[in-house]
Amino acid sequence: MDRPRKDERPDYKTWKDIPLTPVCNFTTIKGNPTGGWRTFRPIVDMDKCIKCGICWQDCPDAAIVWEEDHPVWLYSHCKGCGICARECPSDAIEMELEVKI
């Protein structure tokens, strides 16, 4: 069999294509965007942010990435649990109701 790839959803057409052993490695980053679960969206006020990394540390979904010196929310995956907003020591994050378009 062809080894499954981390970054590519396998394109199996028949039972002959799937690996004999049930294995997979397609990353949920690409395969399972959970952002659609969200009811409240965390919005950071960068003027208040002290860049301590607590929000990054406390995210149960690893959905906050650290770019240069500040947090960036992966809204494609953030489920909106609100832990970042509650734990932020400088109160820089607000949870805002998602507006469905």
Partner: peptide, 14 residues
Amino acid sequence: DPGHVGCLGCGGCH
């Protein structure tokens, strides 16, 4: 990776 299907605020994910 992000995209796992743990509930919102799941401590098991931390």
